[in-house]
Simulated scan of single mutants.
Amino acid sequence: MFRPAIAAAFVTAFLATPAMAEECAGKVARLMVEWTEFREPTVSKMEVVTEGQGKTHSEFAQSAWDHYLYKPTEPAGGPWYLTHDGTMYQSTDEGGSWVALHSFDKQDTREKNIASVEAQAQTVENAVCGEETLDGVAHETLEADTHMSEPTEVHTHAKYWVNKETGFVSKSIITMQQPGFQSTTTQVASPAPDLTLPLPE
């Protein structure tokens, strides 16, 4: 006697699926664009697996939209890179001293980056949204494919874990494929309200 109710529920779920998928795709697109805006100081641990080249680990710290530090942790011993106010610096002694590498128009670079992400966000497809617990904290998961054709053909599959209470992106796994190259970057991020980065003279 429960079959009519089950059938009705199935039909309702089936009819809702396209709308839900469209809503999910919109969430992914909005997150991609919003993620280009600096929100708060953050420290991220990153693992990059490149096909045919192995695995590397690094740390990325950002205290402002134009002030960030990259340092390799495995293999260790590589140069650190610091960007501040439109200039990139390099340190070969773990931050003891810095040498300016080059300067650039930070506002123009930022605007071009945002435009590129906005264009990529318009290609979202195969979006899937859900919920998972990450380190005991409830997160919304957003997952989708995107692609770009300029300056080269790149296909990307990304999954994001978004803290349901704060909106903070705690984790992401992004796989990029292009002719002759594939890499997967896993990034685990944490808010760092007391973060202080060097200010090279």
Score class of each variant (00 low, 15 high):
132 E>F: 03
49 V>M: 06
180 G>T: 06
90 Q>T: 14
129 C>A: 03
168 F>C: 02
22 E>C: 08
183 S>H: 09
91 S>P: 07
53 Q>I: 05
110 R>Y: 07
89 Y>Q: 08
86 G>V: 03
67 H>W: 04
174 I>M: 09
75 P>Y: 00
194 D>P: 01
12 T>D: 13
179 P>A: 05
44 S>F: 00
143 E>V: 10
33 V>G: 14
35 W>H: 14
174 I>Q: 03
58 S>H: 03
200 P>R: 09
109 T>K: 11
33 V>P: 14
4 P>W: 01
26 G>P: 00
54 G>L: 07
68 Y>T: 01
106 K>I: 09
46 M>A: 14
74 E>N: 13
5 A>H: 02
83 T>K: 06
95 G>P: 07
140 E>D: 09
120 Q>C: 07
130 G>Q: 02
3 R>T: 11
178 Q>P: 15
161 W>T: 04
3 R>A: 07
158 A>D: 04
196 T>V: 04
116 S>F: 09
55 K>R: 14
126 N>E: 05
152 T>F: 15
71 K>Q: 03
6 I>D: 15
89 Y>M: 15
75 P>Q: 00
178 Q>N: 11
190 S>E: 06
110 R>F: 06
172 S>K: 07
199 L>A: 14
86 G>F: 14
50 T>Y: 07
177 Q>E: 11
59 E>G: 06
86 G>S: 12
100 A>N: 04
178 Q>C: 09
168 F>W: 01
64 A>K: 09
175 T>A: 08
82 L>H: 09
105 D>T: 00
24 C>W: 01
120 Q>T: 11
131 E>H: 15
26 G>H: 02
78 G>Q: 00
74 E>C: 03
130 G>M: 02
43 V>R: 05
121 A>V: 00
10 F>R: 13
155 H>G: 13
54 G>D: 08
16 A>W: 04
134 L>I: 11
80 W>G: 01
6 I>F: 11
141 T>W: 08
116 S>V: 13
3 R>V: 00
188 V>E: 11
48 V>S: 09
128 V>A: 14
129 C>E: 14
31 L>V: 00
98 W>L: 05
138 A>T: 12
175 T>W: 12
85 D>W: 03
156 T>F: 10
118 E>N: 07
47 E>P: 11
42 T>G: 09
97 S>N: 03
82 L>A: 07
155 H>A: 15
32 M>G: 01
164 K>S: 06
197 L>Y: 05
81 Y>Q: 10
134 L>Q: 12
179 P>I: 05
